[in-house]
Amino acid sequence: MLVIRRELVEAMVAHARRDHPDEACGVIAGPADLGRPERLVPMLNAARSPTFYEFDSADLLALYREMDARDEVPVVIYHSHTATEAYPSRTDVSYAGEPDAHYVLISTRDPERHEFRSYRIVDGAVTEEPVQVVESYMFSHTGVDDVPDAR
């Protein structure tokens, strides 16, 4: 299951809408020991294409160096599909190289309603997982409505 803060979901969707009809892409890094998405890093789609996305190779190296220095891992790797459903394509699966990451797909094909789905992709096998959107990770074991009032 992907547990993720609402503001991060909204930021990814906003990024996908902004770059539409090109595919948008990025990463949410998080502490290696917690595996929790915390730091959103929107990436440039070097392919600038409505049907393909690719991190620029120099940007990719800089991103991984930065994550290493901060003891972070890519917890979420996201991209948008702008004319098809939010399901990993064959290309997505063949490239998926982070077995511990949550692969988030956002579809912007409908201008009014987006689709937001998350997957694990390991050794070519795609497994969809539930997404729990929370206001704060501190209370993520409870439902949003159960969060006690902050004092």
Binding site: E23, C25, V27, M43, A47, S49, P50, T51, F52, Y53, E54, F55, S57, L60, L61, Y64, I77, H79, H81, T82, A83, T84, P88, S89, T91, D92, S94, Y95, A96, G97, E98
Partner: peptide, 12 residues
């Protein structure tokens, strides 16, 4: 020498 998985994909 640094080896990284390319991050890429897309509809096509």
């Amino acid at each position: 020498v640094t080896i990284l998985p390319a991050v890429a994909g897309g509809r096509r």
